[in-house]
Design a protein around this nucleic acid. Sequence first.
DNA 1: GAGATAAATGTAAACGTGTTCATGGAATAA
DNA 2: TTATTCCATGAACACGTTTACATTTATCTC
Lengths: 342, 342
Amino acid sequence: MSRNSAPTLHDVARRAGVSTATVSRCLNTPQLVAESTREAVLRAVDELGYTPHFAGRALASNRSNTIGAVIPTMENAIFARGLQAFQETLADAGVTLLVASSSYDAVREFEQIRALVGRGVDGLLLIGSARPAATYAFLDRRRIPYVMAWNYRPNQSGCHVGFDNRQAAIEMTRKVIALGHRRIAMIAGITRDNDRAFDRVDGVRDAVIQAGLAVEDLQIVEARYSLNSGGEACAALLERGPRPTAIICGNDVLAVGAIMMAKSLGLNLPEALSITGMDDIELARIVTPSLTTIHVPHRRMGSTAARALLAIRDGVTDCPGALIDTHLVMRDSLAPPPGADA
Amino acid sequence: MSRNSAPTLHDVARRAGVSTATVSRCLNTPQLVAESTREAVLRAVDELGYTPHFAGRALASNRSNTIGAVIPTMENAIFARGLQAFQETLADAGVTLLVASSSYDAVREFEQIRALVGRGVDGLLLIGSARPAATYAFLDRRRIPYVMAWNYRPNQSGCHVGFDNRQAAIEMTRKVIALGHRRIAMIAGITRDNDRAFDRVDGVRDAVIQAGLAVEDLQIVEARYSLNSGGEACAALLERGPRPTAIICGNDVLAVGAIMMAKSLGLNLPEALSITGMDDIELARIVTPSLTTIHVPHRRMGSTAARALLAIRDGVTDCPGALIDTHLVMRDSLAPPPGADA
DNA sequence: GAGATAAATGTAAACGTGTTCATGGAATAA
DNA sequence: TTATTCCATGAACACGTTTACATTTATCTC
């Protein structure tokens, strides 16, 4: 081994007085090697501070023990917790996670997928299912196993681990209506290339129709997932025509932004205005009034997705997808409208 | 190219009627190849949907265009924003980021570093500088460039991009004392293997001494960085002997946990009790009362660290480290103590 | 004790790319 | 035209590992 570069399998082999094949076996299939030899090899490994060279290994074995994930963003907390559990479950199986972000952009997502595939990932975690056919074509051509998470629609094809966003939105909307609200508005995420956001809008709309309310009165504003956008959207809704008594938000970040804006405009929450969220991230408990939202077991979703992906990688052919169930968490930000006979 | 595996350089070469060397040059040093040839090759690349094989490339070039980062945790927001900026700056230079987490454990950190080095990273981002000598020895032996971020101490060796945690804590403590507080407590992070947490404690202690207060009266509790731990620590402090009028917290997460606990115990904030944080993450603006804290320009720190690392990788020998400056942000959670003559 | 079986180890050929060196051809200068 | 320079290209090896196959050594069976 030259003084300034990493020791190789060859160096270890020479030091232990065996062949490179034996060293390799010591590290990968130790049961195939004699105890005495194994000891000598491991000692040499230790003394040299040898670390296997990933590229060499990946090239020879055609396995990278790596799984990739392309998520819309790292900055919002929405994906952080689920991804952490995903990573932990993979780590237990000796698999490394590579994360890339797409900024909610389908073209960028495709680029990131290509980059990860080029790095030899054994499988991919993708968020939702709204993406161009070309992306799916690429994945199929390369025979890359992938799992789509964070959304689960009835009767869909492919392997999905997620919750029913539409149904969750319906549940929340019914609750709002049941409390007596009639002038309802929604601050939704950008629905383009985002099936979760789309399904949530769809659910709210459906619930309104089913309740016999006029769907034309349902005001919907789309906003980027950030506190500021949520606040701006809220201000815009409050300025317009008949002021809503409840605002259903596409997620907790938008809802918290809306709450802060409403407070700064002097509104008394929740008496003057009810606001609801979705996802139940940490923020929901912290904001005042605390946020009524839909709880999503993000950690369970993440680890379930990881197990599904590992199973497919190991040859399971029928998709072990899963529908994760959610529930409404009643907190302080949702109350009957002003003047309700409740 | 066999039907079910990725196209290789060889496949592209055959299709374009050139050698693999020419294809390689087309992709890496296009100026060395004739225009007409280049066109033909790029067309073939496109038609085959060719993506370079990372492992092959890394093996041959001994360059991975990858930089690794080992951070204590992904779950708390403390590192998310800075890391995002770090990643964006790297991406602009065509470099991929690999992230691993150590769970605030020095042994795990070493393992993760080894794994990343095995993957051929061209450089490393590490948090702080408190780690065993063996870790540094390994890095030096392998000649891996690394930058230590999130902390900057005067007169230290090595390449650092960060802020002066001790000085920031001093500034906050002075402010608290100036408002009239005398019975002060601190909820600190776990200081073992964590120089940022240590320096913050150090700063608070120093400021107390410099102000001529009795340092024995300064109660300090260590807690893991989570809302719950912060809350529990707060409850413990409030039960003990002379109740503090101000609690200085080691970071915003602890502070928010403390605020929620204090509120749930029926205390009127900030009149009955002042609480301060550090880092200025999003939570600080959202909690009620809004949190007085030290603002840290995380994005700037991240991108500066990225540029430093790229510079070292490209041969700059003197470390382009940087001291990032911070400032105190006065919000509602800090006020004079009860009965102050202010 | 001879032959058969099993266990342990070595040999050598991949894997996909970058890169050095050699080669051929075109353009330039005399 | 001939000699010279320069540019574009191809052939072949190296990178570090895994693994199929060959070989040696130990163990068992009758």
